[in-house]
Each structure stands twice: as C-alpha cells, then as structure tokens.
C-alpha cells in the first residue's frame, strides 16, 4: 500500500482528499445530527447531483464549460439548494419536512434531464454517484482543501454559537444571538462539505459520512466535544479502511466507506450493550 501510495499521484490525491473529508464531514455532521437535519443533508446531495449533471452536459455543448471542474457547478447548486430549503421551510411553517422531498426529487429530476441530454450514463458520472479512488484530480484536491480550511475556521471560531444554536435555539435568541444568520452560515457550510465529500464517497452516499460516524459516537461519548472527537476518529477510520479496500478489491469507495462505517456503528452499539450488561 505504502509503495503504491508513493508511486501513484491519483492515490495520493484520493487519500489526501479522503483524510480531509473524514475530518470535516463528521465534524459538521455532529451538529447536523443533533439538530435533526440529517435528511436535509441528503436532499442537498441530490441537488448537487443536478449541478454535476448540468456541468457534464454543458461541457459537451458549451465551449466555455469544457475545462471546468464539475465540482464548481455542483457546489453552486448545493449552496443555492441550501438557501432554497430555508425559503421552503418558512413557506411551509407547519410542514417543514416537506422541503426535503421537494428538493430531493427536484434534484434528481433536474439531474436526470441533464444526464439524458448528455447522452446517458458514463464512467465519469458513475464516479460522481458512488465515489472513486482514481478520479480525484489535483484541482479537486485544491477545492476540497479550500473548503476544509473554511469549514474548520468557521466551526472553531463560532463553536460556542453553533453549540447554542443546536442545543437550544430559543435560549440563543433570548440571549441576543442572531440565530438566522448563524443558521444560514451553517447551511452554506453543509452544502460546501457535501460538494467536497462527493468526489470520494459519491453523491448518493455523502450523507452517510456525516451521520453514521456520529451515530456511532453518540452511543459511547460523554458530552458534545467528545462526540465530535469520536465522530471524526470513526470517520477517518471508515475513510482510510474504505479507500484501501476499494483500491485492492477494485470497488467504488462509496460502498466500502459506508460498509466500514456501518461495521463501526454496529461495533459501537454492541460495545455499549455489552458494557451496560457487564456493569
């Protein structure tokens, strides 16, 4: 493995990108899970798909889009989707979860239209759907690094505000926090992390890396900081194990990373139950 890593640039890119998203996806995921927004992450990932599909189509038809990394348009759609979700949630005040199926089906619908226009499925699209070990290029890595730096900065600078927003929004408001602005920042960050993670785990499985490690961590942790720490640890293990097995077994890493996460999750649940019986 080490030798392969030293020899192949594509592997270096995949591992560097994997380690970055193994950090930021569970980090933001911890806030997403406790705020009960897991499904919103899923809806956003499907909107990202329509952005990717649009970009693949445009690259065939419009010269200006030819060399453009589809991640940019995917990211744009994702961020626009996050703002649209907020709008929908305020339109349907009493049925806020409606925003999820609307965006989820809308994202796939628009995506499918662009995919058909661009002459159907190809390996490129497949790699976006389920992740890829070999498709992560230098420009992807730069973009993922940029997003990671932004997310790490925002979360560490606004940690206590984000904690309060997640734990008790009303108390936050009563103590003078601008929860609307904060929530918007949070949604945009979620959109960015989804766009960044997509290259490795794939659009359809992005939300798994934001939720499964957190679900495992919550079984074992004491306190929120520990939950974040364990989530990141589990996320990194899942990504590294998933990437190595994807490389050797020639599988899509989205699948291997999710299966690794689920094994960790089952382990955490089992350990907790065993521990509870023993004590």
């Amino acid at each position: 493995m080490i030798e392969a890593l030293l020899n192949y640039e594509f592997l270096q890119n995949a591992f560097a990108a994997g380690i970055l998203i193994g950090l930021i996806a569970p980090l933001l995921g911890a806030f997403i899970v406790v705020r009960r927004l897991s499904l919103i992450a899923d809806a956003l990932s499907h909107v990202t798909l329509s952005g990717i599909a649009a970009s693949l189509f445009l690259s065939k038809t419009v010269v200006a889009f030819n060399g453009l990394n589809p991640l940019w348009l995917g990211m744009g759609f994702s961020v626009a989707g996050s703002l649209l979700i907020e709008r929908l949630r305020s339109v349907y005040k009493h049925y806020q979860e409606l925003a999820i199926p609307i965006l989820l089906s809308g994202g796939i619908g628009v995506g499918v239209i662009f995919i058909s226009l661009a002459d159907g499925f190809n390996t490129d699209l497949f790699s976006y759907l389920f992740g890829s070990v070999s498709a992560v290029g230098r420009s992807d890595l730069y973009l993922i690094t940029g997003i990671s730096i932004i997310v790490l900065l925002v979360v560490s600078l606004l940690y206590k505000e984000l904690f309060l927003l997640s734990f008790d929004e009303e108390f936050g408001k009563a103590s003078g926090l601008s929860t609307k602005v904060l929530h918007l920042i949070f949604m945009v960050m979620t959109a960015l992390v989804i766009a960044a993670s997509m290259r490795i785990v794939g659009i359809l499985l992005v939300s798994s890396l934001m939720t499964l490690p957190v679900a495992a961590a919550m079984r074992l942790s004491r306190g929120f900081k520990q939950t974040i720490g364990l989530s990141v640890l589990f996320g990194e293990i899942a990504v590294v194990v998933g990437l190595i097995s994807a490389f050797y077994l020639d599988l899509a890493p989205g699948g291997t990373i999710v299966v690794s996460s689920i094994i960790i999750l089952l382990g955490a649940i089992g350990f907790r139950n065993w521990f509870a019986v023993k004590n």
């Binding site: 904690f163 309060l164 306190g223 939950t227």
Partner: peptide, 11 residues
C-alpha cells in the same frame, strides 16, 4: 442531546 452539564452551563 449529547452534552454534559458543564457544556450546557457554559453555553
């Protein structure tokens, strides 16, 4: 919510 008493009071 996975937060300790200390974290909640600190908030």
């Amino acid at each position: 919510f996975p937060a300790t008493v200390y974290e909640v009071v600190a908030s």
